[in-house]
Design a protein around this nucleic acid. Structure first.
Length: 211
DNA sequence: CCGCTGATATTCT
DNA sequence: GAATATCAGCGGG
């Protein structure tokens, strides 16, 4: 067979994760995250770096919690938020330098009824909108932290490179300089983007502009 | 649709 | 002890 630059399925993931987090993040839009019967197409992500990023968990160097962020690319970094919620990131870049992409929202493309059963009181709109809701719908827990996204059980398969995407400030951060490191696919009917907590002075827009 | 508020455990100072 | 990469539930338009 002819040598193909990109392998299909989860095996083609690693080349995509090589680079700065804000470069890798938009590439992941449209990729399919799968766990068991449920699969979703990523529609919103957020980039986080390490030492030079005050908004990152890894800003002050490695800790027991953030150790995975300093490891090799392609692993899942999960953390417990606000005493209640689990959120998931894909570790990117190179070992020794912390970087990750937070998975903020997606569109369910498989196992819709299973996802619904896990979030019975949720509206269709809120089924997988938001990082903690996304993890709940896919049954991703803290135990999946450090697991390999190529080997599974949670996998990420690259999709076609998105033609259009938008960017803006990250959500929920305080005390960090605003960087337009949130990326999303515009025009998703069932999965709209999270709004910033406060009005932005200058919401940096991607090609096409915000709203 | 919008805005507000309480809940709750881990993490680091 | 303070802060937190959040969400559900409530009220009003």
């Amino acid at each position: 067979m002819a040598a193909s630059p990109e392998q299909p399925g989860p095996a083609g993931l690693l080349p995509l994760l090589d680079g700065a987090p804000e470069e890798v993040a938009p590439r992941l839009l449209g990729a399919v995250l799968r766990h068991g019967e449920v699969a979703l197409r990523l529609t919103e992500v957020e980039a986080y770096a390490g030492e030079d990023d005050p908004g990152s968990h890894a800003y002050r160097g490695p800790t027991p919690r953030t150790e995975v962020m300093f490891g090799p690319a392609g692993r899942l970094y999960t953390y417990f938020s606000y005493g209640m919620h689990v959120c998931a990131n894909v570790v990117v870049g190179h070992e020794g330098r912390a970087a990750a992409v937070l998975l903020r929202a997606g569109e369910v493309v498989e196992g819709h009824d299973v996802a619904r059963a896990r979030r019975p009181r949720s509206s269709e709109r809120d089924l997988t909108r938001g990082p903690a809701r996304l993890c709940q719908a896919l049954a991703i827990t803290l135990e999946h932290g450090g697991s390999d996204l190529v080997a599974g059980p949670v996998t990420l398969e690259p999709g076609p490179a998105p033609e259009h995407w938008e960017s803006g400030p990250r959500v929920g951060l305080r005390g960090a300089p605003e960087r337009p490191w949130r990326f999303w696919l515009p025009g998703e009917p069932s999965v709209s983007t999270y709004r910033p907590a406060a009005a932005r002075p200058a919401p940096s827009t991607g090609p096409g502009g915000r709203r």
